[in-house]
Design a protein around this nucleic acid. Structure first.
Lengths: 179, 179
DNA sequence: CTTCAATTGGACTTATTGGTCCATTATGCA
DNA sequence: TGCATAATGGACCAATAAGTCCAATTGAAG
């Protein structure tokens, strides 16, 4: 619910109704709404990374990147509500809650790490040129994904996402050594 | 205020206090809060496009694109609060207000049009290859900008924005004919 | 100056919010 | 079985939200 409608549009009464849990339980397990939101961030980080398996941990070739792209786009098409859980929370909270901002930055960082790991393996194997920077390439990949997701959510079309990820994969491909 | 903290975190009392205007004036000029928000979207669209002048309407060469990039990054560094006014509103409202979503999609579309116009001129002049698609290139550029802005806002660093736009400009450069 | 409509101030209403409280119920342990 | 502690339900509270209302004020036209 927080993913779909945002923190501020999701009241604790909504959470109670949807979960069949009373307010005292909520306040027994969470200090306040902010604490619950922080937990939601952790949860969504896991969800986002988990949903990209098994691709995400094996992105060490161009074909693997393309398969990841296809899975990602398919997932986005199937989703009932658009956008990225982390991205939406980041957009809403980054300016207003420093603890939330930090956790979201960590979430993005973990995501980038996974991408970077695969690219680093490509570099070690010599598939990626010596001048290629896995860290920056991963960051560019992630930016493309987030921007694509936001535009796709707004235009209600998967095209922006597809085009953005394709661009990012092309960008990686530029650094691939000729076989 | 709506740009920095979101629609839901900005109360009409806040607006009254900041503008020195009474509630009856607010409701005299706007049917309700939603109507005001719709007007804010229109206003922010103008602001975003206006802030990119004079570059935005002359992006018809690689060097112009790079100058635009530099101006954009400088603007973002100087801004007190990160992110994109359109992107933030889109993230918050796309799922919950169809009129708002439409206007935001229009705003993005206008932005893409400006980018596309420059690329089309490059293509007409033969600077861009025949196979290049100005529409898709512009969409990729915009996705990179939005994703970069979101990650920069979250990580409080301008690096993601720089890397993302550089990637997108490289992507355009791939379609440039050798001189 | 008078008049009448448009504009304005701000008190007010109602609904909803996050959060508190305490009596009641369940649970684990001797 | 009995006791102490933890977990639970739901009434309750104060603050804040959007939105309403009407009396007071302004301004232009005759």
């Amino acid at each position: 619910m927080i993913y779909a409608h945002g923190v501020e549009r999701t009241s604790l009464d909504d959470v109670m109704a949807a979960s069949g849990v009373s307010k005292s339980q909520l306040y027994h397990y969470f200090a306040d709404k902010d604490a619950l939101v922080l937990e939601v961030i952790a949860r969504q980080t896991e969800r986002v990374l988990g949903a990209q398996r098994p691709h995400l941990d094996a992105l060490d070739s161009l074909s693997a990147l393309k398969a990841w792209r296809d899975g990602f786009v398919r997932l986005n098409k199937a989703a009932q509500c658009g956008g990225c859980p982390l991205g939406s929370l980041a957009s809403e909270l980054a300016n207003d809650s420093e603890p939330a901002r930090k956790r979201l930055a960590d979430g993005f960082s973990m995501w980038r790490d996974r991408l970077e790991n695969g690219l680093s393996r490509m570099k070690e194997r010599g598939e990626l040129g010596a001048s290629a920077d896995p860290h920056d390439l991963a960051l560019a990949l992630l930016s493309a994904v987030e921007g694509g997701l936001l535009l796709s959510k707004t235009t209600q079309s998967s095209r922006p996402l597809e085009i953005a990820i394709d661009m990012a994969i092309d960008h990686v491909a530029r650094n691939v050594n000729a076989p």
